[in-house]
């Protein structure tokens, strides 16, 4: 199939790789040339590692690499059957892209957003052919995490939902379907893992180290909530919570934590800054 991915950041290039590995022709579009170049060296690096580990041959690597065509022009996407948008989480940006796509692409093309927090219904509003605009939410890192959420906007057709589900299965992913509600499934139901742990910390019931130990040893979770926030980025985690909270019209169950806000304000964002709830500077 002819697939295109818009946005060549970590998510976009990861999604492009997932598609190329399954034999799709992929156009990877980004308006920024240096981002495209970075994406290409990132893809090279991953594919080289696959060859080193004996997962693919040199010729398979070349074939996959060559099937991802970088482009800076949206016009180039006119012949694509499936477009997956993976640009930063800004409504104005996404709305503009889907407006343009709905004019450029054929009426049968499926136009999908990898948004984790913006309403699909809102992105699709006013576009030509709203029934073919849906969410297809990958999890980071896209080449590794098996789940994708297929999100039904208010005007998405059931036929298109089934097409996207099948497309995801063919990519080797595990698709689940959900309605267009804030945080979809995972980012919503996982909120208490972080928020309630922060609340427990805020009431001095236990320390972050204790809570992590309890959740892994008593609960069987793979990583404790604080170690996991440090890995994800405390700023990213806080932004997700704030977005879910705002979009649920300030429902108290999603109320963000002031401890987390202070960490973000102080620039203690986790591993990427050398420190978060734990110290990584040594």
């Amino acid at each position: 199939m002819l697939v295109s991915v818009i946005g060549a950041g970590t998510m976009g290039s990861g999604i492009a790789l997932v598609c190329a590995r399954k034999g799709h022709q992929v156009k990877l579009m980004d308006t920024n040339q240096s981002v495209l170049e970075k994406a290409q060296s990132f893809l090279q690096k991953i594919l080289n590692r696959d060859v080193e580990k004996g997962r693919i041959s040199e010729s398979e690597k070349e074939k996959i690499y060559q099937s991802i065509l970088p482009t800076q022009s949206m016009e180039q996407l006119a012949d694509c059957e499936i477009v997956i948008e993976a640009v930063p989480e800004r409504l104005d940006l996404k709305k503009k892209i889907f407006q343009d796509l709905s004019n450029i692409c054929s009426e049968k093309a499926l136009l999908l957003s990898n948004t984790s927090s913006i309403s699909i219904t809102e992105i699709a509003a006013g576009c030509k052919g709203e029934e073919r605009i849906l969410g297809l939410h990958f999890f980071n890192p896209a080449p590794v995490m098996p789940l994708v959420e297929v999100i039904r906007g208010m005007k998405s057709s059931e036929e298109n939902v089934q097409k996207v589900v099948q497309f995801a299965k063919d990519l080797g992913k595990v698709p689940v379907t959900c309605n267009d509600s804030p945080g979809f499934i995972v980012n919503r139901i996982a909120r208490p893992y972080y928020n309630e742990s922060l609340n427990i910390l805020g009431s001095r019931i236990a320390t972050p180290k204790q809570i992590d130990e309890i959740m892994t040893k008593a609960g069987g979770f793979r990583m404790g909530p604080f170690a996991l926030q440090d890995l994800i980025g405390i700023d990213i985690n806080f932004a997700t919570t704030e977005s879910v909270y705002t979009n649920f019209f300030h429902e108290g169950r999603f109320k963000p934590s002031r401890i987390q806000q202070r960490m973000v304000q102080a620039g203690r964002l986790g591993r990427k800054t050398g420190g978060g709830f734990y110290d990584y500077s040594k």
């Binding site: 999890f139 789940l147 689940v176 309605n179 499934i185 995972v186 139901i189 609960g219």
Partner: peptide, 24 residues
């Protein structure tokens, strides 16, 4: 709450949390 609101089926909710965020 998500189930009550019809956000997704019970099976999909369980699959999502295991495969999207590694819950046991």
């Amino acid at each position: 709450f998500a189930l009550m609101e019809g956000t997704a089926s019970k099976e999909d909710i369980d699959i999502a949390m295991k495969k999207g965020t590694n819950y046991p």
